[in-house]
């Protein structure tokens, strides 16, 4: 546990040692607020549905940007050799890194709180979908981050890590969308719609947190963190 916390702090502080983190946060806030407010006044409805609807697409870029450095940079600098010869288990490092980017994402998302506050001042929104939306966003973000970390462990090039992460996340996001489901064999429809990252996000976003959705996200996160550990450990056998 102590090892995980130490890794967590090292990684988390690492985000703020360069201006890049602030650039991510600010562009995320600007883009989402802008896109959302364009529809907000049109819809003339006191709800955040439009905002949460944007998140799966905006996260598609934000999450890989957060994770791309995590392993790729260690590989490039060679510091992975320092890290992996410390008396810690591989999975402790994987978890530490994941928690660091997860907390970073949560922090970024918390900075959007002026939006729900504004909506509450302007109207009388249903609070369930707002809490649900945030909960779903954390889970969806966590899944994206786990995928991004795995992608980062495959290469020493950050840009490659970024693009690979976007491709995998995108694939997982759209396989549950209706236009994909219409084009796959009937037998596979339930599988695809279950695997899609987006469908679970929508159901949590309605304000009811179903244990199946929770289980789904935790499995995706667990699965990719496991792949990440395997990929990091595979250096031993090359």
């Amino acid at each position: 546990m102590k090892n995980i916390i130490n890794i967590f702090w090292k990684e988390f502080k690492g985000y703020f040692s360069s201006p890049v983190a602030y650039i991510f946060i600010i562009s995320f806030l600007v883009v989402t607020t802008w896109l959302y407010s364009r529809t907000f006044f049109l819809a003339n409805q006191a709800s955040l549905r439009g905002f949460f609807g944007l998140l799966p697409w905006v996260f598609l870029f934000l999450a890989p940007a957060i994770t791309m450095r995590s392993w790729a940079e260690e590989k490039k600098l060679g510091t992975i050799e320092i890290l992996m010869t410390l008396p810690v288990k591989e999975w402790e490092i994987v978890i530490g890194k994941f928690l660091a980017c997860f907390v970073f994402l949560v922090l970024t998302l918390c900075l959007t709180c002026p939006l729900p506050i504004t909506v509450m001042l302007l109207g009388n929104p249903d609070l369930g979908p707002i809490w649900g939306g945030y909960a779903g966003a954390f889970l969806l973000g966590g899944a994206y981050l786990a995928i991004g970390l795995f992608a980062s462990s495959l290469t020493e090039n950050q840009i490659v890590a970024f693009i690979v992460a976007i491709i995998i996340c995108f694939a997982f996001l759209i396989i549950g969308e209706t236009f994909v489901l219409m084009n796959v064999p009937q037998a596979l429809v339930p599988v695809f719609s279950y695997l899609g990252l987006g469908s679970h996000f929508q159901s949590i976003g309605r304000g009811v947190i179903d244990s199946r959705d929770l289980l789904y996200y935790l499995s995706v996160i667990g699965f990719f963190l496991y792949l990440n550990q395997v990929s990091v450990e595979s250096r031993k056998w090359k």
Partner: peptide, 30 residues
């Protein structure tokens, strides 16, 4: 690994950490 102190080839270091911060990090991990 606990018993060994290791200086890898090419001496890789975390370039954006402070010197003290780096040694402290390793000390904690150790």
């Amino acid at each position: 690994r606990r018993k060994i102190g290791y200086l890898p080839e090419n001496n890789p270091l975390y370039m954006d950490m402070g010197l003290l911060e780096y040694v402290k990090f390793i000390a904690q991990m150790r």
